[in-house]
Amino acid sequence: MDGSSVELSPRKNSKLVIYLLGAVLPVGALLLWQVFGQLGYISTMLFPTPATIFGAFIQLTTSGLLMEHFQISVTRMVIGFLIGGGLGLLFGIVVGLSKPVEKALDPTVQMIRMIPHLAVAPLFILWLGIGEESKVLLIAKGAFFPLYINTYLGIRSVDNKLFEVARTLGFNRWKLVRLLVIPSAVPNLLLGLRLSLGVSWVGLVVAELMAATSGIGYLMSDARQFNNTPVVFVGIAIFAVVGVFTDTVVRLLEKWLLRWKDSYQG
């Protein structure tokens, strides 16, 4: 009993030290930024001090403006991601499982994939106007490809030796998919999920900056027109925080789903 408590406490301490170590650089940078801004060494027009940015954040929050636009952005992201990611997953599974479908579909999909993601944004706006549809479409397009390709690759990466085992165990086609193919594809699938989230996130930002009347991106481009730099910074910070948050969620999901995996933990 005694031994374990003695052993535990230094571990906790060292964990705390590691967290503090990681915080030194950003906190230090923020402090320097604040001090230099106040002393007039850097232009507060281009680089408003952290305190000013925080003030703008508080103001946007209390007025309810931030929440309103944030909700709109998140809704777009979720709808676009569900449509694009869902289709990518579905196509990836079907193409991965069936050679004839692969032959029929994959060349076309690969061709479309070669078009730079954001190059079609003006076309989408032209077709669908600056309403919700063009933005959702751009987000969905971004979400589709990484999930499609990685699902398909994951399915094709099934170990032939395990496939033999499945045959000697008498798995039928459905059991083969459920008990061997899908679990084998999970690592690739999660990678696809992560990449898809990243790409569609960029799609959201671009769509909102280019042509929108609502959303965090709109808030930013609107602020830019009035030289309201602090609000632009607030927008950047929000995009960053949400990006880190979603990535962390996927990472935790990965940790749980791949707990069987024997990989280098650092």
Binding site: V165, T168, G170, P183, W260
Partner: peptide, 21 residues
Amino acid sequence: KGPGIDKGYIFQEPRLFPWLN
């Protein structure tokens, strides 16, 4: 005509499903 559970097979390597306990 093919493999099945009436013919049990133990391979040279264990060949376990790594994601199952």
